[in-house]
Nucleic acid binder design. Structure first.
Lengths: 123, 123
DNA sequence: CGGGATCCATACTGATACTG
DNA sequence: CAGTATCAGTATGGATCCCG
């Protein structure tokens, strides 16, 4: 288990020395790294949230993109949507197990960005 | 140094309980997770490449987006552009130290996506 | 070969209105 | 509260042509 995993990761990503245009990874990558997808996943990383809460926490997102992005993530099995039929209705969004796996890999990246952002933009 | 870094990562990302709309992280995040940014970084992760090489390896990228994305990454100090004045001209792109740091965090994520993409889209 | 400039299609956003 | 529907304006990306 001490194999450098960088080589194997690259082997899995490259096909015939290229990053194929038509492949499942490209589609999922676009979902996950979409402008709002990343932020929603980070927002949900600590706890589940309601619609209105997500709207407030992820500043700048429009209702349209919130709905659209959540639907995509839900369809991908990354986010779970739980409806509590009440008046007024209550809908909670949470990460699935798969979503938590993903976020675990996403957070270090976000941390690096948070650490380096000022420095990068100061150039 | 055994502090759970998940808490601190979130602390750094959230401001006043929110993901601020106007902050350096959001800008850099958009650069890094841009549609083509990720793929270019992965392509350069193993070795430096020439313009035409990147164009071929990252399938589907247009010349405009290749130029634009490379310029952004260069301005961010993530990618280095080395011009060899010859006829025909030769331009090589490589990761900077900062770029290598970033890619080290990006590859595990890409690996997970490659592993799970089929499963995710099969639903 | 390595781009820059231009034009066009699409995607995204914002505002507003409406519903269960 | 948690959305959906619609429309208009804008930003982004893609295709094409051109140049040193």
């Amino acid at each position: 288990m001490t194999v450098s995993n960088e080589v194997s990761v690259l082997d899995r990503l490259f096909t015939d020395g290229k990053l194929a245009a038509v492949c499942p990874s490209r589609i999922v990558l676009d979902h996950v790294t979409s402008r709002w997808g990343v932020l929603l996943l980070v927002a949900l990383s600590e706890r589940s949230m309601r619609w209105g809460e997500l709207r407030r926490v992820v500043e700048g997102i429009s209702e349209k993109m919130l709905a659209q992005t959540l639907r995509t993530l839900e369809a991908d099995g990354i986010v779970d949507r739980a409806v509590t039929p009440s008046v007024p209705p209550r809908v909670d969004y949470a990460l699935t197990d798969r979503g938590r796996e993903l976020v675990a890999l996403l957070l270090p990246l976000m941390g690096w960005i948070a650490d380096n952002a000022d420095d990068i933009l100061a150039r």
